[in-house]
């Protein structure tokens, strides 16, 4: 079907463009809002590979919760625009060389053999749930504890103020 191809290219280009805005925009609020668009586009792309649960969770967790947290912290901290210009320091120069080199390196090496069986099945929620709560039950419980630890840790770190 043509429609899915169009959808993929539309949202892939949206994701890339706004990802560039995220790392280039000096205003952190605008950067975070661009990130919202990038992640939303990725959620749409998940729909084209028949992963609706992941798409829904992406919108629910990333755009609905994590990025709102970012915006809150930015507004709480009153961050000014970044002072140092991009590429003004050797670290930044090296950083860009490394990341661009990484991209080129992997693309040139991608002429390799990734084994693809080309079979997209429609996974029902029941299958995912069974895998999640039977085979991976232990990891699931561990994740619960991880989140609990994160909540407690974040509260303690953020509220502790040294006096005197």
């Amino acid at each position: 079907m043509m429609l899915e191809t169009v959808i993929f290219y539309l949202f892939a280009s949206l994701a890339v463009i706004f990802a560039l805005v995220v790392i280039l925009h000096p205003d952190p609020v605008k950067a975070t809002l661009s990130m919202v668009i990038t992640l939303f586009s990725l959620a749409v792309i998940y729909l084209t590979i028949k992963a609706p649960l992941i798409a829904a969770l992406q919108i629910l967790l990333y755009t609905g919760a994590i990025l709102v947290l970012f915006l809150f912290v930015i507004m709480l901290l009153n961050i000014q625009r970044e002072i140092s210009l991009p590429f003004s320091k050797p670290v930044q120069l090296w950083g860009s060389i490394v990341s661009v080199g990484f991209l080129i390196g992997i693309i040139t090496n991608f002429a390799i053999k990734i084994k693809i069986e080309e079979s997209v099945k429609n996974y029902s929620l029941v299958l995912i749930a069974e895998s999640l709560f039977k085979e991976n039950a232990l990891s699931f419980i561990a994740t619960g504890f991880l989140l609990l630890a994160a909540v407690v840790g974040a509260t303690i770190i953020a509220t502790k103020v040294k006096r005197g």
């Binding site: 970012f70 930015i74 970044e82 140092s84 930044q92 950083g95 990341s99 661009v100």
Partner: peptide, 22 residues
């Protein structure tokens, strides 16, 4: 891959903590 490289570029070149995190 492209998104990963953009992310790496941002994490290595930006000076603002929040943007690095993003």
């Amino acid at each position: 891959l492209i998104l990963f490289s953009i992310g790496a570029l941002g994490a290595l070149t930006r000076r603002n903590g929040i943007t690095i995190f993003l």
